[in-house]
Simulated scan of single mutants.
Amino acid sequence: MYRPQRALRPAVSACAVALLALAVGCAPQPESKTSGKASASAAEKCARGSLGTRTSGKLTVATDEPAYEPWFKDDKPGNGKGFESAVTYAVARRLGYADGNVVWQSVPFNKAFAPGAKTFDFDINQVSISTERKRAVDFSSGYYDVRQAVIALKNSKAAKATSLADLKNLKLGAQVGTTSLDYIDDVVKPTRQAAAYAKNDQAKSALKNGQVDAIVTDLPTAFYITAAEVTDARIVGQFENRGSAPEQFGLVLDKGSALTSCVTKAVDALRADGTLAKIETQWLSEAVDAPVLK
């Protein structure tokens, strides 16, 4: 705030100040450059191929091991095959990184969104965006809208379930730390404690061995399991989404990452121009529908 110094002739000084204020108020002001600088700064921040990644000129991407179908193909994230591998390379290209400059690393599912510094630029591993997880990490906007589904052996009592009530007295299982397990606990609310497994492979084995009556996974994974891995199982049905917004998978970034806004812009652009829809049609076309359990 401007404070005029004490003058010898207060009256004259006061008039001068008033006239000066009037002149400044009427004089044309120089054009503000703040917005222009902000736009330039944003553009520089997301400059193609020049982001502040962990390794200059490279984009380090993480996922779990093994990398399951239909999200990846042949347990090789770097081959560009499978939905999430294809999405990764589409995001990388949008950010200005050639396929050869994408570096993959293995990070366990639960570690990807646990508190603490990350070793990757972003992680892609069917991680659902949630308020709780956002306390520890950043997410891009969603790259896939997903529902959870129930799988049971074809000749079992569980396979005949048509409602949430039919699931209530069953022994259900899912991978630990997933929204699949959350749906069991929060939506089904079974009378028997759900079994939590470190990997989906363990949940599938428990189903085959009769240790659980049914397991819960995301719908595309359920289609793949029943078609290729546990062929004597079937999809019992899918859950309705909770709330008004669909459950979405998002790319996981370090909390407060400078890359979050740029990666989000890339995902949004891929959704807007139809690229995500094309990738989904190519790799998830079999995961189209299942009865809804209410």
Rank of each mutant, 00 (worst) to 15 (best):
E69D: 12
S156W: 06
K76A: 04
T60Y: 07
E65K: 14
D64R: 13
W71A: 09
G82C: 02
D138P: 04
D123H: 13
Y143L: 09
F122L: 08
S130K: 13
A136M: 12
R93E: 04
A90W: 09
T119Q: 12
A117W: 00
G82Q: 03
W71V: 01
A114H: 04
D121M: 10
G80D: 05
K73C: 04
Y97R: 11
P115E: 01
A98Q: 05
P66V: 10
V146L: 09
T60R: 15
P77G: 03
Y143S: 13
I151R: 06
K154H: 11
R93V: 02
A90I: 09
G82T: 02
W104N: 02
E65W: 12
D64W: 07
S128M: 09
F113R: 05
S156I: 01
L95K: 09
A152M: 06
N79R: 01
K118C: 15
D64F: 13
L95C: 07
G96H: 07
W71Y: 14
V150E: 07
F122P: 05
K58E: 06
W71M: 05
Q148S: 13
D123F: 15
K134W: 08
F109S: 06
F120H: 06
P115H: 00
V146N: 13
V127D: 10
K157V: 13
A136L: 09
G100K: 07
G80L: 05
E69W: 10
